[in-house]
Design a binder for these strands. Sequence first.
DNA 1: GCCGGATATGGTAGCGCTATCATTTCCCGC
DNA 2: GCGGGAAATGATAGCGCTACCATATCCGGC
Lengths: 346, 346
Amino acid sequence: MAPAPRPSTRPKRARRGSGGLTLGDVARLAGVSPITVSRALNDPDRVSPGTLARVQEAVARTGYVPNRVAGGLASNHSRLVAVIIPSLASPMFLATLQALSEALAAEGYQVMIGESGYDGTREDALLDAIIGRRPDGIVLTGVMHSTEGRRRLLAAGIPVVETWDLTPTPIDMLVGFSHEQAGAGAARYLHQCGVREPAMISADDHRAGLRRKGFAEAAKAMGRGKVPVRLVHAPTTIGEGRRALASLLDRHPEIDAVYCSSDVLALGALIEAKARGLAVPGRVRIVGFGDLDFAADTDPPLTTLRVDGTAIGRQAARFLVDRIAGRPEGPRIVDLGVTLVPRASA
Amino acid sequence: MAPAPRPSTRPKRARRGSGGLTLGDVARLAGVSPITVSRALNDPDRVSPGTLARVQEAVARTGYVPNRVAGGLASNHSRLVAVIIPSLASPMFLATLQALSEALAAEGYQVMIGESGYDGTREDALLDAIIGRRPDGIVLTGVMHSTEGRRRLLAAGIPVVETWDLTPTPIDMLVGFSHEQAGAGAARYLHQCGVREPAMISADDHRAGLRRKGFAEAAKAMGRGKVPVRLVHAPTTIGEGRRALASLLDRHPEIDAVYCSSDVLALGALIEAKARGLAVPGRVRIVGFGDLDFAADTDPPLTTLRVDGTAIGRQAARFLVDRIAGRPEGPRIVDLGVTLVPRASA
DNA sequence: GCCGGATATGGTAGCGCTATCATTTCCCGC
DNA sequence: GCGGGAAATGATAGCGCTACCATATCCGGC
């Protein structure tokens, strides 16, 4: 209970509190001080077995749930990690998110997700909302941030991990891969398959743009002309993949391969090719990006660029947990690369 | 700044603070008291224009970001709403989540997402983690909660909205629809199409089970025998849809329709049917559930049960915002129903 | 002219937990 | 037997913001 007010400083009118159970209530029931209850919950090795049992019994009897808001203020540790991804609608980031969430949950952290969208205008407002929560770490997707956003992140003093891209000058820590090299890898693979007229179906966001650039430059280096591109709005859908292939074929009936900037687009292209009676890979080869869970189950199974989203998530979590724990750090930039998974579609 | 300690109670060693900017720093720069800065940020109508301008200038100059942790403790309002969905891997809840997030963001709330999984064992631990953050509202998926979970929710005194199901006895508020009626609707539709040997491909979670039950009972009522069912693990994938149809056809080559408990399963079934040279809907009709964004773009376009996830999300947000604002409430249970969207697959 | 209400700003204690130092007890080594 | 260190527990102030009440000023109605 709050100490009795001294007469000369009696409160005008005491605040009521939220009416809920507090750690002080549990302390009275257990016959210990509030700080012992706090230790029993958060650092039980520092409490004797008998006292620990009494506190646990009191918590069970009262149904007390620790107030993380107050604990976060008092300790300057919120046990929260904020993650910004472009969109929940895209399955691309799912494996990363799940691996990150699981690894952090194992260390007692909760994850808070923010969606920045793909056009770069919402990240700053999202950063303010996130920094306001004083998370113990922030995980970003990509490395393209506004000047103001970058400043706020640096000023906040919160550990930051950038993911899903690569740069030699990260804000803090980074785990990702080169999108340009990924695109180039798809171009080289198709070249090796004997493809003469490649085309691209690509989302219009920045990272897809890097893959597009990589593909086009590698194709050019291998003697190909200007590669026809059909752009679609991110996040991508099966419908857009279908329509994009239809449009490409209308304008360029000679194309014999299509590189798609996501597996979802590739699935749409596959459906459209089949609907038009075009044999895959016989008449047209199709390559995707991401190696999502359905890539092996399409008909034919999809050749695609595999990103190890799970490894990205785990590494990001490891970076944060080590930093927060004050452990010595290894390299702050981890390049996980991309591999091409040949299946039947190309 | 903190008041100077009185000599007789001089602190043993003062806490340092987190080292970041505080509202007190902004107040000094603006030449006002901290509570005026707080009002300028949170209730600007109660501050004169001249003072407001000075505070905003000081905030801009310092880059101050309000500490929501401290504000949440002081005001007992966290500006947070927690949402529990079974899995981010399933696109089923995406529209609901996006609609809810947008509606709440418009009112200054952040959403925190938790994944309960489908087997009912993780919701209680998740509820503790969530209640610890003292959110201003909690949105749940489904109405099947453990006794302990229900108790904790009631004890927490936080407004709760249950979604994606229906019951006459919700914890607090509810917006959803009847899964049994949904399943029955699919059975009736297929009956009207002249289907004689329907089958089901269904996820093994509770709500899919309700739809299964509704379908089976309606089929029986229309003279059908025992409906063959292939169960798959939730969350569902295209691959599982393919394999499930393959398995059903192996055991029951006579089936002429398949009701799938999700559009993802239906897409897999479509791919498998095509791979086997079976005409859809000529040889076998296929019906999905959810009306996801790709349902109109499959080949043929998918007949499916449409759930208005967006309306669910908006209603859930409205419930919470009205409750928190103390506005008079309408009915606490909103049944949005399900409609069947006939397309070419059945 | 006076009084009361509205507006704008301020002071202080407290929201619930914990960092930090203090105290007590026990045990082991010299 | 004594002293020092470790372990267990406690006291207090503070983390950063705001609920709640206080104060001063201004304006309009009687």
